[in-house]
Nucleic acid binder design. Structure first.
Lengths: 121, 121
DNA sequence: ATACTATATGACCAGATGGTCATATAGTCA
DNA sequence: TGACTATATGACCATCTGGTCATATAGTAT
């Protein structure tokens, strides 16, 4: 890995929203709507952060019908793995991270109808 | 550690010059002039990067006569340690990092008269 | 005191960044 | 085909960032 690549990866990590996305994707792959709900952010913003993570090779995506699912790319370089681990392992104790995972669990429990928030009447 | 702190640390890492400084300080403590020479950058620029690293708690400094020596702070939190390790260990193979260490070694060999570059006539 | 050295910091600028809004794209369903 | 849904992207703006130059600070030496 060259230093430019390392710096780009670290830049991708250096943002609250992206850190939270990485933490969430570390538990399971998720589509944009799901991420928007947990992060309580709008679709445009989340999409942009995902685009950045995708560009750096930190996440991958696959379309499934209308939804596009994002996942953490499997590192092919040791440096990539080290950096990613320092986030997913080293920061696992962060309060925000635990809260996000809890929120994700609750949203999942309410049924799979993401996309509109909560259960429909 | 809170997410804000983690993000600040990662921001501090997300720059070529600062990554190189961290790598150099990982081998031994260094003053500003020494860093300027290895990095081939000017004093003002290096000082500013050091100020940022100092603010985030990544490096510490101690005055010794006219010189101020910088060193890597010993991490007190596990998260800090993980992040720092991912740099110093995970990125140790970077070409730029190895070149910098080599250059430092050569400068040391030429004698301890840093501050003006090379040996005086 | 003055002169010199090492380092820090303020002013300034060009470019990057993160957020929001509006719009475009692409897949689904009728 | 058109309506609908999920996602991406362009335009815009305020803020941040990294670099450079000039200046300030602090220690040393005379």
């Amino acid at each position: 890995m060259r230093i430019k690549k390392a710096r780009q990866m670290l830049q991708s990590f250096a943002d609250d929203t992206r850190l939270r996305i990485i933490n969430l994707l570390n538990s399971r792959e998720l589509n944009v709507s799901e991420l928007c709900q947990v992060l309580e952010s709008n679709q445009s913003n989340v999409s942009k952060h995902l685009a950045r993570l995708r560009f750096t090779g930190i996440v991958g995506d696959k379309r499934c019908g209308l939804n596009i699912y994002y996942y953490l790319s499997r590192p092919e370089e040791r440096a990539h793995e080290e950096l990613l681990n320092s986030i997913t392992v080293g920061l696992a104790g962060l309060k925000t991270f635990k809260q996000d995972l809890q929120k994700l669990k609750e949203l999942r429990k309410m049924g799979t109808n993401f996309g509109k928030g909560g259960s429909k009447k």
